[in-house]
Design a protein around this nucleic acid. Sequence first.
DNA 1: AACTCCCGCCAAGTC
DNA 2: GACTTGGCGGGAGTT
Length: 378
Amino acid sequence: MALPSSSTLAEPSTRHHAYSRKQKSLGLLCSNFLSLYDRDDVRSIGLDDAASRLGVERRRIYDIVNVLESVGVLARKAKNQYNWKGFAAIPKALAELKEEGLSENINTIDGNDYAKVSDDEDEDDMYSNPSTGSQNDKPNTGSAKSLTKDNRREKSLALLTQNFVKLFVCSNAELISLDDAARLLLGDGHNSSLMRTKVRRLYDIANVLSSMKLIEKTHTSDTRKPAFRWLGCRGKADNVSVPNDSRKRVFGSDVTNISFKRNKVDSLFDGNSKGDPKAQNQIKYGNLGDEVERRNLEHDSRQSSKNYQFGPFGPTSVAKVGVPESNNVKRVYDWENLASTYRPQYQNEALKDLFSHYVEAWKSWYSEVSGKKSLQIS
DNA sequence: AACTCCCGCCAAGTC
DNA sequence: GACTTGGCGGGAGTT
């Protein structure tokens, strides 16, 4: 409730500023979301609350929440309710994703086709033979219903996010081009419209992941094709970086996501015939690293913005319900403790190593961020 | 013109 | 049946 009524929604025309896409970006919205809820006293988050405080439609909250959940920052508690896990949960989630990705990979022994993606089960087979499938857990398995459900799940933003992240954590790839990612996540037999859709989603995901600084958008050095660089496990070792890439979209100085609609003409319906889904749950990461690395062999390290400000927004109207500003000061995580708590039982050295990388990376990331964080609504 | 990606329709799922 | 989730792709804003 408490949404501004039509009178306050200011037609674009009554305001001096034009519609700006950037003000409405998912990345910015995500940053807003994060700065709004990343505080000590937050336990659970209501979607309606988030939507109204951030001044956006609920639909957008789903987008954010789905990817945040995929990397462990949130956990769904109930309808409309999520638990805030925080950034501290990310290393663990990433480690799990990696483990999962690697073990999936083991099932697909052979493999030199790096771009191969296999769907969890062949849908067609399942339709014809529902009862023989080796169902794992779901209570209501075997029904056509669960099939469509799985089908839906296969295409979900959450799963796509996880697979996207796995691309990085399961390989050594530091940079993956948009094209490659789409291909990798889709498999070979893609039709162009399906591909386009996937790419749109990738943009969505990338925007929220980059607002968390898990990745950053760049492009390949050679082709200048759009690409994503993984930042999640970079330690302080990687000090520097480069001049800032000013072409990069910068979130962060805007205020809210509320209020300006682009004037949409009108929607017409078109009986779309969607391409048929050939989704996937499993990807081979094995050769990915090599392949991608080869491909990016010498990516320049044009890096961008060091100067990112985490959460400069002013969540709209409602503004910090009774939370004293002093609360904006972040907690200081006990990283050592965190590490030992979360350190999984890896028998595998590589994973163990990776894990400590995460911890290191997040330590420095966090201190950097919390140090300069300015939550003030300017 | 190509690239990005916001926006909201509407189907699937849940309560 | 109302409400919640979220796939999807048209088409507008950016580069």
